[in-house]
């Protein structure tokens, strides 16, 4: 009788350990997919607008705010302009979590003056 109890105990213990091990293995293999949508289309639309490009090159934050507000309304955004070496030239808007849509405009009016444009928009 005592031997049978030990056997049942051992089976229960093995089952418990196997269950925990399998679960731990599954959890360790689990990936969390965080899919941020960078506002690529919006940046594309803005880049078509000559007013936007010239406001970028004149580092005119007031004009840039006006243009972005006309496209985005009250949606929070962050627009950061960097030079070719990554130095920050201008940043407007608020801190926004997510991916930035970014591109380089090499110059305007036949000049070479690369500016990196990064735009983040809060997702709904």
């Amino acid at each position: 009788m005592r031997g049978q109890i030990f056997t049942v105990d051992a089976v229960a213990a093995s089952t418990l350990m196997m269950t925990v091990l399998i679960n731990l293995f599954l959890i360790s293999q689990m990936s969390i997919l965080v899919k941020y949508e960078a506002p690529e289309s919006l940046l594309g639309i803005l880049l078509k607008d000559e007013e936007f490009i010239y406001a970028v090159y004149s580092l005119d934050s007031g004009r840039l705010r006006a243009i972005l507000n006309s496209y985005l309304g009250l949606t929070p955004y962050n627009l950061t302009l960097l030079d070719a070496d990554g130095g920050k030239l201008l940043s407007i808007g608020v801190e926004v979590e997510g991916l930035a849509a970014s591109t380089i405009i090499v110059g305007v009016n036949g000049t070479v003056n690369p500016i990196i444009i990064c735009l983040k928009v809060r997702q709904p």
């Binding site: 960078a38 690529e40 289309s41 940046l43 594309g44 880049l47 078509k48 849509a101 591109t103």
Partner: peptide, 8 residues
């Protein structure tokens, strides 16, 4: 974004 590529 394709539009961004076009514009750039």
């Amino acid at each position: 974004g394709l539009e961004k590529i076009f514009a750039t």
